[in-house]
Design a protein around this nucleic acid. Structure first.
Length: 543
RNA sequence: UGGGGUGUAGCCAAGUGGUAAGGCACGGGACUUUGACUCCCGCAUUCGUAGGUUCAAAUCCUGCCACCCCAGCCA
């Protein structure tokens, strides 16, 4: 049995700790409050909070709210709820906007050092001056303004003297750098829009590249872990830390973001699904959001286990969603209360069982477990339509057919004697006899029969609405609107009533059904079916 | 065709000069009052590729190939 290997970031930290560069590990999880967290964020959350946990440091939750037009307080609460649900605790709840004054001071420092200037070029002109991937850019005509003029102009920007887009503050670095991020990046832009936290206190807002390192420095972050696309922003990150004379020197490290097969995770698409009404909201059980999979019955333990298993590396990869499903099943299998349920009821009458008689059997909550609940048996039952065929198709058929025997789980072995049909020839009822000695502990309890069926008793079973969330995309890769939501009625054992709102249970064979904790509709169950958003659907959204 | 990054099994991923961990998936078998679970067994003579160094290379060197990211006043 091999030891759990350390990921490359842990090795960096080990080295930093060893040679004294770091005394206490401080990380941060810095979402922009512009959408809900999804499984991809879970990887980052587990990494950042997990690192802090295992090195006995701490992790801050920081809302990177430097762009007022995209952000909203609605998302802040949702994000906090999801992180807590995953089981992590932040040391400090921070906001980039809390540091606006500090960032402004830093910008002033850069201006005073001659390392930043106010530029009057339009957005289009800046793009033209930036050059291309293969050609160097050229200097802005405003690049050589005097420090005094820059100071005055920047202060006027803050004071609201200019309209949106009229001027920007830029870092003076190198317009010929092969790294486009270093070609005099914009660090402040004018946005006359109310900010969800600072209101109209500001009309200039710092850009990510400028704000992020300063936020990290402000919070004494030691290891600023982000995704690969920021790798070539690192020289800029270091440039700001150095030139703004930061006391704390954080370092940025990058890892590959999570990509899952059959799943779309960009906020842009998820937001479109919500805005277009394709789903009922960010927490629709078909969504790959944390709030969505939570409603689908995923557990935080399963997600954390998944994050652990996929590892952390720099290789861009696509993880098979089967691994996520495996983690969920494994956790559910250990902890999910077992109940029986019948989705599409087919009447079953035990003809040799006395009318009016009932018996109570004990059913294990978990296989082999101590906890049990009662199930009532009588002459009048229901089984799943799918579990019956008048004529068995072959010898690999494990369910009930005329002349065949099966066990009703937790109860008796029954034999199908005949069926009742309606005028159209549809089977409306199955007539069976039972073996009175075959219940648990009985003389013939050990008899081997082909299969075991779930069942529900006519009078004691609870009706419930089961919502089957099916694939958004059919096998041909086309959007199948008919399958979006299928409502079914089901009968479940009385125990379901007690479990409602907290329990999870395994249902029938293939899937896990969970009790929807967030749905207000009583007795609503959600079929644990993963949402599939195939590439073709991504194309549909793009067009 | 500028810069940055990544290539180990169908999918992730360890491995840091001493002869390819582990998980998922998959296949076979045992067990079973869930066709589930559990338990066994199998699954890379080879690490993108071509050379080189070495007693020894996935690991070091050189060339080549493939894929990802960057030209927002988004993050």
């Amino acid at each position: 049995m091999a030891e759990k290997s350390r990921n490359f970031i842990e090795e960096i930290i080990d080295a930093d700790l060893k040679d004294g560069r770091t005394r206490k590990v401080i990380t941060r999880f810095p979402p922009e409050p512009n959408g809900y967290l999804h499984i991809g964020h879970a990887k980052s959350i587990c990494l950042n909070f997990g690192l802090a946990e295992s090195y006995k440091g701490y992790c801050n939750l920081r809302f990177d709210d430097t762009n007022p037009v995209k952000e909203d307080v609605e998302y802040i609460e949702a994000i906090k709820r999801d992180i807590e649900w995953l089981g992590f605790h932040w040391e400090n709840e921070c906001y980039g906007s809390d540091y606006f004054e500090f960032m402004y001071e830093c910008a002033l420092t850069l201006v005073e050092k001659g390392l930043a200037y106010v530029c009057d070029l339009t957005a289009e002109e800046i793009r033209e001056y930036r050059g291309t991937l293969t050609q160097p850019g050229k200097n802005s005509p405003y690049r050589e303004r005097s420090t005094e003029e820059n100071l005055a102009l920047f202060q006027k920007m803050r004071a609201g003297a200019f309209a949106d887009g009229e001027k920007v503050l830029r870092a003076k670095i190198d317009m010929a750098s092969p790294n486009l991020n270093m070609r005099d990046p914009v660090i402040y832009r004018i946005v006359h829009a109310p900010h969800h936290r600072t209101g109209d206190a500001w009309c200039i807002y710092p850009m990510y590249d400028f704000a992020h390192p300063l936020e990290d420095a402000m919070e004494a972050i030691t290891h600023s872990v982000c995704t690969m696309e920021f790798e070539d922003h690192r020289p800029l990150y270091d440039w700001f830390i150095e030139n703004c004379d930061c006391k704390n020197v954080p370092h940025q490290y990058e890892f590959a973001r999570l990509s899952l097969t059959h799943t779309l995770m960009s906020k842009r698409y998820l937001k479109k699904l919500v805005d277009d009404g394709v789903v009922s909201g960010w927490d629709d059980p078909r969504m790959p959001t944390l709030s969505g999979v939570r409603r689908r019955g995923y557990t935080p333990e399963a997600i954390r286990d998944f994050a652990e298993r996929i590892g952390v590396s720099k290789a861009n990869s696509e993880v098979d969603i089967k691994l996520l499903e495996h983690c969920v099943r494994e956790d559910l299998n250990k902890n999910a209360t077992r109940l029986m349920g019948v989705l599409r009821p087919l009447k079953l009458t035990v003809t040799n069982y006395p009318e009016g008689k009932t018996e109570t059997f004990m059913a294990e909550d978990l296989p082999g477990g101590e906890e049990k609940h009662e199930v009532v048996f009588s002459r009048n039952l229901f089984i799943e339509q799918e579990d019956f065929m008048e004529v068995k198709p072959n010898n690999k058929y494990f369910r009930l057919s005329v002349g065949g025997e099966v066990r009703l789980k937790n109860a008796y072995i029954i034999k199908c004697e005949s069926v009742v049909k309606d005028g159209q020839g549809n089977i409306t009822e199955v007539l069976c006899t039972y073996d009175p000695d075959s219940s648990t502990g009985g003389p013939t309890a050990g008899r081997k029969v082909k299969g075991t069926l779930h069942w529900a008793e006519e009078k004691t079973a609870l009706p419930a609405t089961v919502r089957l969330y099916d694939y958004l995309i059919d096998e041909q890769g086309e959007l199948n609107t008919d399958s979006l939501t299928i409502l079914n009625h089901a009968l479940v054992e009385p125990f379901a009533g007690k479990a409602r709102g907290r329990g999870r249970f395994q249902f029938i064979r293939q899937g896990y059904f969970t009790i929807d904790e967030l749905d207000s509709e009583p007795g609503t169950l959600v079929f644990n079916q993963i949402v599939v958003l195939k590439d073709s659907f991504a194309k549909t959204l793009k067009s």
